[in-house]
Design a protein around this nucleic acid. Structure first.
Lengths: 215, 215
DNA sequence: CCTACCGATCGGTAGG
DNA sequence: CCTACCGATCGGTAGG
């Protein structure tokens, strides 16, 4: 791999990105100083600038590396050619595990993507869309009534909401681990999707047959 | 008429908070300058400082006002003494509507709470806990098996995940409105919760003293 | 004395 | 790899 650079160069970069991701996640990209990053890495500021051109370079690498890992994870699961239900359950489990061990990068991707240029944002967002598509296509396959009502994507995003939000409140150490949460999310989703129906409120004209059709 | 302050003073404060919340949500608290806030409000910077002591004062007011509105919303729904299922469905609907019309403040509460002092963070977090408790107690009431397995709080947080995450991806204007999303979330949740089972992994010895001093 | 501001500039600190 | 700095911009406040 590392050709032309000392063998530890890439390792040092990874180490810096890890420390930077932690600081960005804790304090936000803007409020994090390069002095702080250098200090956390045990480097002088000029030394830090030897590995990354500028602060933005850190951000874009953290975000990019994270989505690339997610894409690789999707490919890995897809290649196992599991049944649709088993595939979706495995995707959920693997994402929970991946997010758990990449929490800082994940938070940076969620909260600091706004600091990327439009070009970089678009590239990252397209990668994310590929990932969510792997989920939503399986969802549409499992529950055709969702796809027909164009609810496969929204419902898939509700699933991502459960998973993504988990890392804002869940702290392992009690009676539950991250691994325990994956099947809970999966059971809730698989049990609930059959109950999801398209909205009855035909938006444009407020027709007077206001039976509400609730329940 | 004017009692101590001119009649427009409080109105001006609300207007400033609204503009500041939008900027904080778009660019983050740290990356937003007081010059930018003043400009967005059509005020000079000294004029802005006439209404708020400093930048932090803006942040704490945005967060506080938002959680207070959420608490008021919970009280309003609770006082209607609905059946548990109707109450939870109404809570979901009202929160989706509230978040939709307070998206900027909501995002600030989620992403910029880290810039508050520990004291202010604790106060806001306690208010949030009161809100989530209104949900989780209804959840435990509806599905006793969840409460017995200590899964009422985690499951409730998965529900909040669906709702909170919605505002990162959902844009109304297609065939779905925010109002349409509420029953979809509710149906998914009500349909799925009966399928949620406690994890079989028995990680540590689950000591029964884990009441968490809540409820 | 109050309020509601403005033009100009303060001391510090950011990224680089 | 360090000390020593820069152009700019930050949050906040002076006098009028």
């Amino acid at each position: 791999m590392a050709r032309g650079r000392s063998s530890g160069y890439e390792d040092q970069r990874e180490l810096i990105l890890s420390h930077a991701a932690e600081l960005f996640a804790q304090r936000g990209y803007s409020a994090t100083s390069m002095n702080g990053v250098a200090e956390a890495c045990g480097l002088s500021k000029p030394a830090l600038y030897h590995y990354f051109r500028d602060k933005y370079d850190l951000l874009v690498n953290i975000a990019e590396n994270h989505v690339v890992r997610l894409q690789a994870l999707v490919c890995e699961v897809t290649n196992k050619s599991l049944e649709p239900e088993a595939r979706l359950r495995e995707l959920i489990r693997r994402f929970v595990v991946e997010y758990a061990q990449a929490q800082h990068a994940h938070r940076v991707l969620v909260e600091d993507i706004k600091f990327l240029t439009e070009e970089d944002q678009t590239r990252i967002l397209n990668a994310e869309r590929q990932v969510t598509h792997a989920f939503s296509s399986t969802v549409a396959q499992l529950w055709p009534h969702l796809g027909q009502a164009h609810l496969d994507k929204p419902t898939t995003m509700l699933l991502f909401g459960m998973i993504n939000w988990m890392f804002t409140w869940f702290r392992p150490g009690g009676s539950l681990s991250y691994e325990d949460m994956a099947p809970i999310v999966a059971d809730l989703f698989f049990g609930g999707v059959p109950s999801v129906r398209p909205p009855v409120t035909t938006n444009p004209p407020p027709s007077s047959d206001s039976t509400k059709a609730d329940t």
